[in-house]
């Protein structure tokens, strides 16, 4: 079975290679989205001053020293909760707690390790012992560079482009009678669809990795543990491979499938925030968009790659993506069997 799926997927890559529109939508357009949109919104790098929350619990002298340190912008925190919330919301890279008696605690957003390390060195320079860093997990919806959002949008478009293109190629193959012909070969019928889904999945995977590298080059990627991005990417690709199969069965012939696949994908993209950022959408669209796999994919990918969150934080959207992919694949398979009769 694996052999048959590999052979069929290999054929799909050979077909993809000669399919200019599919290549464009799957591989070129997402890169354009990531780079051009990001640049349009001002590709400013990380802020020049490291924003820090300072909680003074009885060491006013040190607090004032912190205020005057070059390279940082210190803001007083009301209490521990408020300070940590500011870090989580992305308004500060870290919270510095000055305990009575001279102890210094540093609680930082590890996704901003560069800024936190700079701060740690500065604090050590104030004469305190080099403090240990306690991690504060960052928030999910908190792009720090414009590229972070645009790379996530590019990733969403990679998934959309691959799903729509492969749905089309599947429809073309069915229309040419090739699925009937393939049934003469000693392979299972499921293999034929698995082959197409595997090719779509691999195309998504390849383009997401490419965009992740691009994002890293643009300073928009701060992955934490590697399990989280692996999970998010695999799940997002599975979801869209499943949706590809389902949409390919929602019509007879290439033209109808083109309409249904691109139609569905564009709606998911619009509500999911891949065309305009969610914040720019009316509230009702934002709430509907919560149900868009495009939204989940962007959330999971941003969290895993952009904010360096752990696998636990991306587990939920990843599970939703994977489940959607599995359900869509099953539905597509059922429709395929019904239409083949």
């Amino acid at each position: 079975m694996i052999r048959a799926v590999a052979i069929l997927a290999g054929k799909d890559f050979a077909l993809l290679w000669r399919d200019r529109p599919a290549l464009f939508w799957t591989f070129v357009f997402p890169v354009l989205v990531a780079v051009v949109i990001g640049a349009m919104f001002g590709g400013a790098p990380a802020p020049a001053l490291v924003p820090v929350q300072v909680l003074d619990q009885g060491d006013a002298g040190r607090a004032r020293m912190l205020d005057e340190l070059p390279g940082i912008q210190a803001v007083r925190a009301e209490n521990e909760q408020a300070g940590e919330a500011a870090v989580r919301a992305g308004r500060a890279a870290a919270l510095v707690v000055l305990r009575p008696g001279g102890a210094v605690e540093l609680r930082g957003d590890l996704a901003r390790r560069g800024e936190v390390e700079l701060l740690r060195a500065l604090v050590a320079g104030m004469g305190a012992a080099k403090p240990a860093i306690t991690a504060i997990a960052g928030g999910a919806d908190r792009p720090r560079t414009p590229f972070e959002r645009s790379v996530a949008a590019g990733m969403a478009w990679a998934l959309i482009g691959a799903a729509a293109s492969f749905a089309l190629s599947l429809a073309r193959e069915a229309q040419a009678g090739l699925f009937v012909r393939l049934r003469a070969a000693p392979i299972a019928r499921l293999d034929v669809l698995l082959g197409k889904a595997a090719a779509c999945w691999l195309a998504c995977l390849g383009e997401l990795l490419l965009l992740a590298l691009l994002g890293a080059a643009l300073g928009a990627m701060r992955p934490g543990e590697m399990l989280a991005p692996a999970m998010a990417i695999a799940a997002a690709a599975s979801c869209f491979a499943g949706l590809m199969l389902l949409t390919s069965q929602l019509g007879d012939g290439e033209m109808k499938v083109a309409a249904s696949a691109w139609g569905l994908m564009l709606v998911l993209a619009l509500f999911g925030g891949a065309i305009l950022p969610p914040a720019m959408l009316p509230e009702w669209m934002q709430s509907i968009g919560q149900a868009s796999p495009v939204r989940w994919a962007m959330q999971a990918l941003e969290a895993a790659l952009g904010s360096g969150q752990g696998w636990r934080d991306v587990a939920r959207p990843s599970a939703m993506l994977a489940a959607t992919g599995a359900i869509a694949f099953a539905l597509g398979w059922a429709l395929f069997l019904r239409r083949a009769r």
Partner: peptide, 19 residues
Amino acid sequence: TLYEDLTAEQNARFFGRLY
């Protein structure tokens, strides 16, 4: 029943592999 966007050889090899 052929893949129009593959070469003659790619078609033949593909069907051979399936068997």
